[in-house]
Nucleic acid binder design. Structure first.
Lengths: 116, 116
DNA sequence: CCCCCATACCTATCGCTTCTACATATCATC
DNA sequence: GATGATATGTAGAAGCGATAGGTATGGGGG
């Protein structure tokens, strides 16, 4: 319940998070944001002004598709799901992220850098 | 000598890398870029058009100070070194980075996320 | 001697993403 | 009927890294 410590997300990270959450199944935007915040133990906070443009971008790129449905609570919401292209994108972005983390770890001198 | 795989650096990462490299001792810009590339096993490539503006920004913020000296090969170069403020900044940015990596790891479902 | 490459610095501009701030609408609860 | 959570959206600002240029020097090969 503390305020999220990670106020700013590095560029490109949001796409990865969205894609990964949607790999668990279709979900609407608001729920995606909540899921990210909860799963990250309140460290990551996705702003609405970042979330919806990101979803639209991913949809335009063909990584997501969406349709309006009713939520559990009986409200209209836009449910997004991964397309085949989105799944591919998730894989490449995940690999890219891990490589980045490992590379930065080498610079920082993290012991994990040598592990493997 | 493969081409660097990480073409784009996420926003904010470059400062961290520069500060960390300079924590090892004063160095000029061109050498900083080389060091990052080598230490990361050719994964990270720092473009000159990113490097020099970043150095100037960090200098303006008081994280670095610079003066011209001769390199080993007898050429003029601008040697940067960490200020006290820069050292503080390095620590906070490092902590921030680790927290980010852990949080994203939780979303991705990395086993490391549970470790600790 | 000349050309090329690595070294070493710099800047203008673009592109992209995220953030801030605002606007809208429904539903449940008090 | 007011309030807060749910749910979506846009406009504008800000920041950073990348692209693409430019300058200058030194060393090695042809």
């Amino acid at each position: 319940m503390g305020a999220p410590a990670q106020t700013d997300l590095p560029q490109g990270t949001l796409d990865l998070l969205i894609l990964r959450v949607l790999a668990l199944g279709p979900m609407h935007g608001y729920a995606i944001a909540r899921r990210i915040q909860q799963t990250s133990r309140e460290v990551l906070a996705v702003q609405q002004g970042s979330l919806y443009p990101a979803l639209h971008r991913l949809e335009n790129k063909g990584a997501l598709s969406a349709d309006w449905k009713l939520t559990d609570t009986g409200r209209e919401a836009k449910f997004y799901r991964l397309t085949a292209r989105g799944r591919t994108r998730l894989e490449s972005e995940t690999a890219n992220w891990r490589q980045l983390v490992e590379a930065v770890g080498l610079i920082l001198g993290d012991p994990e850098g040598e592990r493997r």
